[in-house]
């Protein structure tokens, strides 16, 4: 056995009122792995991702990040909900990139990247700015540091958003369809940045419709449908030789 998995889900269930969205998810994401999540719209991919950093609370099962229970503290056989501040503390280590970027529009690119280190980690502004500029350089936007999000293209905004998440030195990055809101010619820049991250050994969970990216960069791939994991394996195997009918019909539509 190798080290403990970065993310481990055991029978995770999630409902919104009467709507049962996640119906028992079991999976493991190893450290340094690029884990791709595909599936039809409404299958619960975003919901699962949001459970991992406790933007949603799971109803049943267990979810661990780096060996620690998400959202709860276990004492004996009882679970205690974590306080708001404790949840915030755990989220520091998990970066998240959204489909619609969600940059802070009242801050420039570099201010967006500095914000969490200054507010959450209490870094000095000078130190945070220097590091933010380095991160912007890493995503190829050194010359856009002073621009507001409204003055950036979609692809540039998403790369700033990635830099913003990286600024907290996360041990895990969650990507929720990071390129779905982008014009086709802007997708490549964002995927390049993600590829670079993968090469640097970042653990990443990527919800995506970019099958090419999944095949080239992904270490494992899970096909989700209707709140359950239908098929899992190496991306090459699942994408070229799917075993289940549901996987086959989904792939025939998107490939």
């Amino acid at each position: 056995m190798t080290a403990q998995p970065m993310v481990k889900a055991e029978g995770v269930h999630k409902s919104f009122g009467p709507a049962h969205i996640l119906k028992g998810i079991d999976l493991e994401v190893a450290e340094g792995e690029v884990f791709c999540l595909i599936g039809p719209s409404g299958s619960g991919k975003s919901t699962f991702l949001r459970c991992i950093n406790h933007l949603e609370q799971i109803n049943a099962g267990r979810l661990y990040v780096d060996g620690e229970l998400v959202g709860y503290r276990q004492k004996g056989d009882k679970l205690y909900e974590l306080k708001d501040s404790e949840v915030a503390l755990k989220r520091r280590d998990i970066g998240m990139v959204f489909q619609r970027f969600n940059l802070f529009p009242h801050m420039t690119a570099v201010e967006n990247v500095m914000e969490a280190p200054v507010q959450v980690k209490r870094e000095s502004k000078a130190v945070a700015r220097e590091r933010a500029l380095k991160l912007l350089d890493r995503v190829g936007l050194a010359d856009k540091a002073g621009n507001y999000p409204s003055q950036l293209s979609g692809g540039q905004q998403q790369r700033v958003a990635i830099a913003r998440a990286l600024a907290m030195d996360p041990k895990l990055m969650l990507f929720d369809e990071p390129t779905s809101a982008l014009d086709p010619e802007l997708v490549g820049d964002v995927l390049d940045v993600m590829r670079g991250l993968a090469e640097d050994g970042m653990t990443m969970i990527v919800v995506t419709h970019e099958m090419g990216f999944a095949r080239e960069v992904g270490d494992s791939l899970v096909f989700m449908d209707d709140g359950v994991v239908v098929e899992a394996g190496h991306p090459r195997d699942v994408l070229t030789n799917p075993q289940h009918d549901r996987t086959k019909s989904f792939l025939s539509k998107v490939l």
Partner: peptide, 12 residues
């Protein structure tokens, strides 16, 4: 999405 992004960064 603004609140979510902020929470995801670890802000209270």
């Amino acid at each position: 999405g603004q609140t979510e992004a902020s929470h995801a960064l670890g802000m209270t």
